[in-house]
Design a protein around this nucleic acid. Structure first.
Lengths: 144, 144
DNA sequence: ATATAATACATTGTATACAATGTATTATAT
DNA sequence: ATATAATACATTGTATACAATGTATTATAT
C-alpha cells in the first residue's frame, strides 16, 4: 500500500475542479474577445445587466471576489464606457456600479454567448444539472 | 419571458465551477502556507513526487498549464531546493524536473494535507465521486 | 457629544494564467 | 547533405486573484 496515494494528483477532487474551471473559462474566451470582455468582466457585467445598479460590496459578495480584484476591473469597465462608478449619496463609503447605455448595448451582443458556449459543453442536461447543484452546495458550505 | 434570462449569473454552469474552484483552492492555502507552497506549486509537486522525474512538456500536459506559467513556477521550486532542472541529454530542448532530497522531505510534510482538507469538503462520498467523474468527463471532452 | 470600532473601498506586493512571440534543437522532406 | 518544418521551452505583456495594509466614512458605546 502506497502511503502517499492520497497525494497523487489523480486522487484529488480539487484538481479536476481547478482544471475544468480553467478550461471552461478558456472556452468562453473567443466569444468574449468579440465583445471585448474578459471572463471576470463578463460575470461582473452579468450582475450589472440584471440589477442595473449594484454596489461594489454586493458585487464582491455575489462573485466571491475581493476589492483588490474588483476595483481595477471596474475601472476598466468604466474606461470602456459600459458602467459608471459613483459614490453612493447615502453612504459615501459605497460605490454604485451602474449600467450605461453602452453597457446596455453590449448586453445585446452578449446575449448569444451562453447558447454558443453551451453547445460546446459536452454534458447531458441531467449531468449538467447535477453538477450545478453539487457545485452550489459546495460553494454554500465553503463560504458560510 | 425575459429574453436575457440565459445571461443571468444564476443560470450559468460556468460560474459555480469558477467560484467553487477558487474557494477550494483557498481552502488549501492555510495548509500549503505551512509547507511553503502555493496551490499550483503543490499540484506540480504532486506529479514530481509521483514520477521522481518528469519533463516539462508532460507536466504541462497533465496540469493543463503552459510554459508561460510553468517556467517561472519551476524556477521558484528550484530556488526552494525541492526540484532540480536540467536539460535532457537525449533531447536538449527538453527540461527534466527531478525530485531532490529536500523535495522528498517536503513530501512527508505534505502527506497530511489531503486528509485535512478532505474533512473540510462538505460532500458525501457518493457526491464527491459523482463530481469527480463528471469533471473528468468534461475535462476530457474539452481538451481533445 | 465624542472617542472607538466597524465598514467599504483603495492600494501594494506576490503569484499565477495565458496569448503571442522568440530561440535553440531536432525531425523531416527532397 | 541540407533547407524547412516541427518541437520544447523561454520571454513579454496583459489581466486576474488575494492577503495585508491604508483611508475615509459611518455606526456605536459611553
Amino acid at each position: 500500500m502506497d502511503p502517499y496515494s492520497s497525494l497523487k494528483l489523480e486522487n484529488q477532487l480539487c484538481f479536476p475542479l481547478y482544471a475544468a474551471a480553467k478550461e471552461v473559462v478558456r472556452l468562453y474566451t473567443p466569444y468574449l474577445d468579440e465583445i471585448g470582455l474578459t471572463y471576470t468582466q463578463y460575470i461582473a457585467m452579468m450582475l450589472v445587466w440584471e440589477k442595473k445598479e449594484i454596489v461594489v460590496k454586493d458585487l464582491a459578495q455575489r462573485l466571491f471576489l475581493d476589492t483588490g480584484t474588483l476595483t481595477p476591473l471596474l475601472k476598466k469597465l468604466e474606461a470602456k464606457g459600459v458602467v459608471s462608478l459613483t459614490r453612493a449619496p447615502k453612504d459615501k463609503r459605497s460605490v454604485v456600479v451602474a449600467l450605461t447605455p453602452q453597457g446596455q448595448a453590449l448586453r445585446n451582443k452578449a446575449a448569444a454567448i451562453p447558447a454558443q458556449v453551451g453547445q460546446c459543453l459536452p454534458l447531458k442536461p441531467q449531468e449538467a444539472q447535477q453538477l450545478y447543484t453539487t457545485l452550489y452546495k459546495l460553494l454554500g458550505k465553503l463560504t458560510q
